[in-house]
Computed example of a mutant assay.
Amino acid sequence: MKKILLPIILLASFMACEQEHATTSEIVIDDTDFEATDWTTDSHSNDAAPNFEEVFEDNAVKRLDLVITADRWEAMLDDMTSLYGTFGTGRGGNSFSDENPIFVPAEVFYEGTQWYKVGVRFKGNSSLASTWNSGNMKLSFKLDIAGI
């Protein structure tokens, strides 16, 4: 398997999982013994050459699954409300915020391979505020993948 880049252009599918009561600020993970047995140098290392043919294949739409628990998704929406006002109410809140939305832990899957230790948040500045305030749930995401 070749190392793949995960650009924003990949199609994402979002699934809510079991309820969880911790938000990003409450999560403490002791992973000193963490070992991802399914990772390889080709799939998860900066030492492998990027496989641009895989990522930018001309005749395919790639699928990247982001799994965010229902509680974490709700925390993301609550944070957006505090930054930009109530969803879909025009200019109900700040039209621009100097703060970035919160990151929450997520699981990421691509063609049967999982990336662990991934943070996801809404991405954008004025475009994010405009989309949120117009009531459009087509919001961009930023991924932070540990070790990559």
Rank of each mutant, 00 (worst) to 15 (best):
V61W: 01
S43L: 08
G135L: 07
G112A: 01
F56L: 14
Q19H: 10
T89W: 09
V118I: 03
G92R: 11
P7L: 06
M76F: 00
A75L: 12
L11T: 11
F56Y: 15
P105M: 15
V118K: 05
S134I: 04
G124R: 11
D98P: 02
D42M: 07
L66N: 03
L128K: 04
T89L: 14
G88A: 09
L6G: 01
V55Y: 01
N136D: 12
T81K: 11
V120K: 02
L11K: 13
G93R: 11
W115E: 10
P50L: 10
D30T: 14
R63G: 02
E54D: 14
W73S: 15
T86E: 10
I148N: 05
G88F: 00
G90N: 10
S45N: 01
S45G: 05
N94L: 14
V104F: 08
I27N: 09
S82H: 04
V55A: 01
I148H: 14
L139Y: 06
Q19V: 13
D31N: 15
E74Y: 11
L139I: 08
V120C: 11
L77P: 09
E111C: 06
V67I: 07
S13K: 15
T32N: 12
I148M: 13
T24Y: 12
S43E: 13
E18F: 07
P101H: 00
H44R: 11
L64Y: 12
E107S: 14
L66S: 00
P105C: 04
L77V: 10
R91L: 14
H21W: 08
S127Q: 02
I8H: 12
L64W: 09
A75G: 11
D38S: 10
A12V: 07
F56R: 15
T86N: 04
K2N: 02
N51I: 01
L64A: 03
W115T: 08
D42Q: 15
